[in-house]
């Protein structure tokens, strides 16, 4: 997306309060109109305003990947993204991944391969992995490792995360 169209989509200041903006977030297909402080990040808007706490905060500094969500299909760090930048954009979070109570194949693969321990990085890992499949970065284990390296797992579940993604990527290829 060009810089221009991004600006064109910026939220408008709400009348009467210079620090407050009106934003419409489309999260997992549903529209939410929010009146929020312009400083609020997408991460905090999801967690505090919309009670979607599946997206995690591990650093709030863009260094861990726990807050990874998809905006218009691309993975972003929601702690480095202002909610106001996402006006009328499509935001996808972990809560929207399963449908009709059925887990997404990546969620199932993470379960089967024990791709987590404490589970705190897991929503971010899985959202990153969803994007990875679309990015076509699953050609080899090394490629998966490289392009999943923005998501820290302090419990060290990396080999199992790679196994889970590899399995889903191979199934998709078949």
């Amino acid at each position: 997306m060009s810089q221009d169209s991004r600006n064109a989509r910026a939220a408008q200041p709400a009348a009467g309060d210079a620090g407050t903006v009106r934003v419409t977030l489309t999260v997992n297909g549903a529209d939410h109109e929010l009146l929020i402080d312009s400083r609020v990040t997408l991460l905090d808007a999801l967690r505090d305003e919309l009670a979607l706490t599946g997206t995690k905060k591990g650093c709030d500094q863009g260094a861990c990947g726990a807050c990874t969500v998809l905006v218009d299909g691309r993975r972003v760090l929601s702690c480095l993204t202002l909610a106001a930048q996402c006006d009328r954009r499509q935001v996808a979070t972990i809560e929207g991944l399963s449908s009709d109570g059925r887990l997404h194949p990546l969620q199932e693969a993470f379960l089967r391969h024990d791709g987590f321990q404490c589970g705190y990085c897991t929503p971010g890992q899985i959202m990153s992995a969803v994007a990875l499949l679309h990015e076509g970065r699953t050609g080899s284990d090394d490629e998966i490792r490289e392009f999943m390296s923005g998501n820290i797992c302090r419990c060290g579940a990396y080999p199992n995360i790679v196994a889970a993604i590899r399995e889903v990527a191979r199934q998709g290829a078949r």
Partner: peptide
């Protein structure tokens, strides 16, 4: 056996203390 708390964790539905409101 797969983790019994796994389904919650992969769905982002396990509530850590920072998720409590």
């Amino acid at each position: 056996v797969d983790r019994v708390d796994g389904p919650l964790k992969v769905a982002g539905a396990a509530a850590y203390s920072s998720d409590i409101t």
